[in-house]
Amino acid sequence: MSWENLGQQLVNGLSLGSIYALIALGYTMVYGILRFINFAHGDVFMIGAFAGLYFHRWLSPFLAGLPNLLSALIILFCSMAVCSLLGVIIEKCAYKPLRKKGRLIMLITAIGVSLFLAYTAQLAFGATPRGFPPLIDVHTFGGGSTPAVTSVQIIVLGVTVALLLGLRFIVMNTRTGLAMHALSLNPTAAALMGVNADSAISFTFALGSAMAGAAGVFYALFYPAIDPFMGLTPGIKAFVAAVLGGIGNIPGAALGGVLLGVIETFVVAYSPNIGVSSGYRDAVAFVILILILLFKPSGLLGKPENEKV
């Protein structure tokens, strides 16, 4: 076996990585502000995929005349909106009442919310995997000596970049972004500056969950069989991606996601070369997690946390 198709595997890795990156952003933003890991985030991602499925079904009659890409974007934004709302509701109902009770209690609650969402979805949508519609015409560009890139990959990568830039703009250039930043640095000082913690936290959940919703739709486009427990593995991998980039660091989450996607794809593609079975695909993330916690717990872009005086 040789290292052929390197470019091809890179494209595949970037596509997978962009999905991890989108999910990882939600983990990292919530961690930045509330210092806890929202383990229900992977299930919001799953709801995003189901929302895409149902919006496709419901909206198809109305979107019939529109170009393919436009109708796909409409379905995407509707799914993102549903997830956004779901994220805000989860925060208000499950986490907000426990905010002063300690992070461990919120963490355990998050696991509860995760199970609640997965099993409620199972009740509503059934346990059997459902087929996901392609949404856009699938073309393949290149192939042979050059990497083969599908139209889905191009659109997913393009929309992901647009979403990341949009998020960056919101965080860096708006008042709400400033409030989120201040809150993550020092909640008490932020409150004294007039930052409304409740609305900034809601906004953080809305943004993070919208990104997870988009990731859910993208994931379903790549792997078009969706089920209520599909959020578990990508959710945990995206958490690893967030830790890899430096938990709490937004560019770090994007970087960690992309890196994890590429590494995972390479391990699978070149498993004979490096002497591991491709069956270890899911173990890659956890090996990375262990290594990063051992050697650079603050992550690639994170700064070691200073004790506040």
Binding site: L185, A189, A191, L192, M193, N306
Partner: peptide, 23 residues
């Protein structure tokens, strides 16, 4: 809530200063 009181025009310079040291 503190943000409401701040909006009414009370500025509190807290003990230990609480500046945003990363900014």
């Amino acid at each position: 809530p503190p943000h409401h009181i701040a909006a009414l025009g009370i500025a509190h310079v807290p003990e230990g200063r609480m500046i945003f040291s990363n900014l």
